[in-house]
Design a protein around this nucleic acid. Structure first.
Lengths: 331, 331
DNA sequence: ACTCCTCTTGCTACCGGTAGCAAGCTTCGC
DNA sequence: GCGAAGCTTGCTACCGGTAGCAAGAGGAGT
């Protein structure tokens, strides 16, 4: 494999200096049409294009954005990743996907991100502990950080997320109007602030309706199996008479798992015997086999705003955006 | 925001030359313990870590792998992306996600990939036209290219994929044994070679069983709606007596859409009135509400082999791996 | 024809590392 | 006690660009 052509080689071929070659590839640079043509022609035959790595080193901008993701189990991630990469690319930025799972610790990944000189770091719905971030975020030369699709209390790290309080308010209003009075809530990972947030708001809004004591079903993690297990455990340990009449799940993937158990294993009807509500509005939830009532996050808006902040077209600050209740047959 | 510390600054603080600083951070370099300690201490207080961008420029290796994806509608992509990024990171390689959708043309993305000096380029299940690639792939300095989870006839571009012929053979054997005799096949995008491949093998194996004329349902693209529409169109235009008794869909997402229409809109039973089979074994297919019989691609093996080829631990060459039939209630 | 001004071009210095040579210092054998 | 071998250390040159200065070229005005 031959090496890539460099500006110097093109310069020799075109009979100019390498700086003139560079100028031919720099929009708005001071160069005559004649030289530009000469250079472009030589570049064409040598198949030259500027080396972006060298440019990055010299300009201190890589045009790369790191996206940290830790929960790939939620199908909601894929469409947002698509949107994010599309909008970033439209601004000339590339998406570097960084997998933060059990095998890779956050601190290591953050150090690496610093060494790579990313233009920005996006924490996409990740379960970072705030302490971990707080330290790193303030290091000199560390790229600006943002949190996407999750709340953040980290100072200096703006979060763009769906307004959970407003969302849960809409959901509880809807459920109350439909006549449900014995609410349950299924949580995934209990340590996440989002988790506590959604549960917290849910309980609060029911309290305002005069209903205390939301039953909690703890799935422990976010997966259909976990949701199924939690639902199974609850239904096995409760008497039909005392049961909740509506189960709100922290996200759709839990809700689908729960719904399967409710219908297939216990023969209950949804929503007549037990209504189910999810969050995120993932695609399978909308399939006729489920008809899951859910809440759609404003993905496009969140991504657009995030990209605008990264490119500096908007001042970076925390933003909570309204989503949209998607009523279907399950509640 | 202060700048990052450089080796030169650390060198001054530690009273050595910058090359000694570099050596302290280079495993196996020739340096005394005393100097190394001195340097590491100075580095600690200045919060220094080597600049990987500069290293990349000098060594001509970026430790970044570009992954081209065009079809984000298939949920199958997410778990594979997770695996891929995990395994690449375990080898010290980062994943750069490149979105090739309607808005971005392939050629442009490929040029960009060349300019960025990626260590490798993976075409992940993408619908590249072979001509487009053929040209680019041979350019000097272009990173080695691989095709993941899709066949490829491009010379010099090895593909790691599931053995479609073997898979379809297993599927047809299974369906024949179960007594099905009137097969149908639903295609997504007709231009893709994979599509033609699966359909081709399916028809071939039925022919060997003495059954000619597989009915084709063309969905045109890969989405649940497209699958639903194609199924609807077929069921509306065919008489119950002459209908196929088993519908194999090119992937699960089509199959789920078809299954919904078959059951909810036409009141048919699956598999009694019409059996349905998919491909990819995506998560929702396994939910009790569907119980979709499918074929699982050997994702882990494919990814492991791909990463081994990229790191040079394996010689790069085309490989077709056997997958696994996942029989469920739908067929 | 001459001056002045502007546009173009080449240049030095630099981004922050790597590669590999050569000098200086140890260490060892005899 | 001395020379040879080996380890450390500093050095030059380089990766392929960018930034901005200064000299040269070209054109307008008088």
């Amino acid at each position: 494999m031959r090496k890539r052509a460099t500006a110097k080689e093109v310069a020799e071929a075109a009979g100019v200096s390498k700086w003139t070659v560079i100028r031919a590839f720099t929009p708005g640079a001071s160069i005559t049409d004649a030289s530009r043509q000469k250079v472009l022609q030589a570049a064409e035959t040598l198949n030259y294009s500027p080396n972006l790595l060298a440019r990055s080193l010299a300009t201190n901008t890589t045009h790369q954005v790191a996206v940290f993701v830790d929960d790939f189990a939620n199908p909601h991630k894929l469409p947002v990743l698509e949107l994010l990469s599309e909008r970033l690319q439209a601004e000339g930025l590339l998406t570097v996907l960084i997998n933060i799972n059990r095998h890779f610790d956050h601190v290591h990944a953050l150090i690496n991100a610093g060494q790579r000189q990313f233009d920005a770091v996006i924490l996409f719905g990740t379960a970072f502990r705030e302490e971990t971030l707080g330290d790193r975020g303030l290091e000199p030369g560390f790229p600006p950080m943002f949190v996407l699709a999750r709340g953040s209390q980290i100072p200096g790290v703006p979060a763009i997320a769906c307004d959970a309080e407003r969302a849960l308010g809409e959901i509880v209003d809807y459920l109350f109007d439909k006549g449900y009075r014995r609410p349950g809530f299924m949580t995934g990972a209990r340590t996440l602030s989002t988790a506590l947030g959604r549960r917290h708001h849910y309980a609060n809004f029911w309290r305002r309706k005069g209903i205390e004591g939301v039953v909690e079903l703890a799935a422990g993690r976010y997966s259909a199996e976990a949701g199924a297990e939690a639902a199974r455990a609850y239904l096995n340990s409760s008497s039909p008479a005392s049961r909740i009449d509506v189960l709100m799940c922290e996200n759709d993937i839990l809700a689908l798992g729960a719904m399967d158990v409710v219908r297939s294993e216990f023969g209950l009807r949804v929503p007549e015997d037990l209504a189910v509500v999810g969050f995120d509005n993932i695609e399978p939830g909308g399939f006729p086999a489920y008809g899951l009532t859910s809440y759609e996050q404003p993905n496009e808006k969140m991504v657009d705003i995030m990209v605008a902040m990264i490119t500096g077209k908007r001042t970076a600050k925390m933003m909570l955006l309204p989503g949209r209740l998607v009523p279907r047959s399950s509640a």
